[in-house]
Design a protein around this nucleic acid. Structure first.
Lengths: 341, 341
DNA sequence: ACAAAATATTTACGCGCGTAAAGTATGTAC
DNA sequence: GTACATACTTTACGCGCGTAAATATTTTGT
């Protein structure tokens, strides 16, 4: 099967009997060469198992098909899931995605963007760290590379923003909770990394006012990205000191809610909407894991498909040259009723 | 601050007043140039915010500092966590890691490896998909690139294998379960993707025989990587049809256990080791989420640090030229006692 | 102040490929 | 068979950088 090792396109063009420029054309787009030529090249590809060096390819191409995808934290299944979704859309559209995580570190985020530059990407899908991000560095990057911001908005950065409608998220689930039981208090981190958290708190306050209820915000201590543990510890503290004025707790996000549920379990507080339950807990995000908590978590879910589709399509359009003014697209969430509230 | 845009090292060497070869040397290793030269270059870097194109760099370097990290599925927090761990170790050792996921798809796994070749990596840390992997392609890759296999072993592939001692995992937790209550049955997927699953079943059977108990293996249907859902549905089925001969269930992995716990909740079966609990459930892996199930999951955890340290160190040694025969290092797990068993 | 050693510069080529221009072969229309 | 359009080959240059060799310039030691 395998003859001698082919080291580059030069050698490959020799053994395939087709000139290098034509071979190059073929790899760029197989349809662009005559059928008979294509057959010869494909036979040689099969025989010698050659494929061109993609990095050398991209070095000279005016337009690469590279797309960078940057998320703040890949160990969070929410980002892992949406990243996978975006990757698939890029592949389907004929692009070549590369995934990066800032691992929660602003310095790493900047480094990732610097490396991304070397890749000469046709475009980038960027979910910024948020508050911690180096704004100046992000702006510089967006000046150079067509960048679509998703998940968490940073002013009018990049081509456009696509994310969830956090205002609608919180209003909607607050409304649901008010209609089905006691009005909720709001359980959040004191210093959230993500700007969406502020929108959600604000939406909660507005919604409660609209509905004529007295709001209560409970902000728990904790730094970093270990949200479950922050929720658990904060939950213990709040339960021990009877800080909840209501039996219904709306968490700023699902990971906090997951931690709070654990705290409830550990304190023998029964959660759910049954008559024998002490409190109701709801989250926000539609985290992949929220289905498997006990009780399963009532939440309002990102529309993963819609967000990733809008984000990817908007980027592809911009790459294709469609110039449109910056805009923000915020997609509504879907209420997912489960047992916890 | 920022003057005109510097486009390449040529332009940069002009504005910095240092010749290009010396600049090149500097970026390869700042210590290799005279202090006064370094100062000038660093001042220019600061002033013009230039950094070399890493892909062009690697194109010609004999030895790159690139390390590829390949995992089967990044949406699984276990792999996300160990990948992050490995990335950090690479950075600390002066390497430049790049993370890839096969997304559960053998074809994608091969494609990832092909792309990795273009990167001329100094070495690769590869966690294969397992049964589904294209063995021939993996072997070819390992012939060309120093590759260390981790997590799931494929014969004597690559430089070496580093992973957890699945036999010890299952023996140890089986022993614990036997000593503290009824001997467990074994809850697993009928057609697991990962070869570790077979080792675990075998270890269970051996352990039960050693302890003089009658084993029971319950294999549930389900394809793909949605283990929680497979565990949940299989759990419902097994509970409904009273297929469990014992009150103690050892799951082949934590994700199955998480699904099973949800099934228990949904059927109102109380899980735990208290006197009022109907069954005990244990997992295996020390999944990042196992702390936050209700009840928190008793499991035997990978020693993430030790596995990643051994894997990374073994690769770095091989890169540094230390030739050692293929060997398999299997690291023991730590029993994590929580409320579920 | 001088020679020796260390470091920089100049020059030149290579990596693996894209791409453009000019010329040649192949295929299609009549 | 001629005319024309396609597709191919040849040639040549460029991308952004590594790297080697010869030469020139510092720096160091004494």
């Amino acid at each position: 099967m395998a003859e001698k090792k082919i080291r580059n396109m030069e050698e490959f063009s020799a053994v395939s009997g087709i000139s290098r420029p034509t071979v190059s054309k073929f790899f760029n787009n197989p349809e662009s060469v005559r059928q008979s030529t294509r057959d010869k090249i494909e036979a040689a590809v099969e025989k010698y198992d050659y494929r061109p060096n993609i990095f050398a390819m991209n070095q000279n191409r005016k337009l690469t098909k590279n797309v960078g995808i940057v998320v703040p934290l890949l160990t969070d299944p929410y980002f892992a899931e949406i990243a996978r979704n975006l990757e698939q859309r890029c592949i389907d559209a004929g692009y070549r995605p590369t995934l990066f995580s800032a691992h929660g570190d602003p310095a790493l985020e900047v480094e990732v963007l610097d490396n991304l530059r070397s890749m000469k990407p046709a475009g980038v899908l960027l979910a910024p760290l948020g508050r911690a991000s180096d704004r100046v560095a992000l702006e510089k990057f967006c000046d150079d590379v067509p960048t679509l911001i998703f998940d968490s908005s940073v002013d009018e950065l990049g081509l456009a923003f696509v994310g969830s409608d956090n205002f609608q998220f919180t209003s909607h689930i607050t409304d649901y909770l008010c209609r089905t039981g006691e009005p909720p208090c709001f359980f959040e981190m004191k210093t959230p990394a993500n700007p969406n958290a502020h929108r959600r708190r604000q939406a909660y306050l507005t919604a409660m006012e609209t509905f004529g209820h007295k709001p209560q915000v409970i902000s728990v201590e904790g730094e970093g990205w270990g949200f479950e543990e922050i929720g658990r510890l904060g939950g213990h503290d709040a339960l021990a000191n009877r800080r909840f004025d209501t039996n219904t707790i709306l968490c700023s996000n699902d990971r906090l809610a997951i931690g709070l549920l654990t705290a409830c379990y550990e304190r023998n507080v029964s959660v759910g909407r049954g008559p024998d339950c002490a409190i109701r807990v709801a989250g926000q995000d539609g985290h992949p894991h929220s289905r498997y908590t006990c009780p399963p978590l009532t939440t309002i879910s990102h529309d993963y498909d819609a967000v990733s589709k809008h984000a990817a399509d908007a980027l592809f359009e911009a790459i294709d040259g469609e110039v449109s003014p910056w805009k923000s697209t915020r997609i509504e969430g879907k209420l997912i009723l489960r047992d916890s509230a």
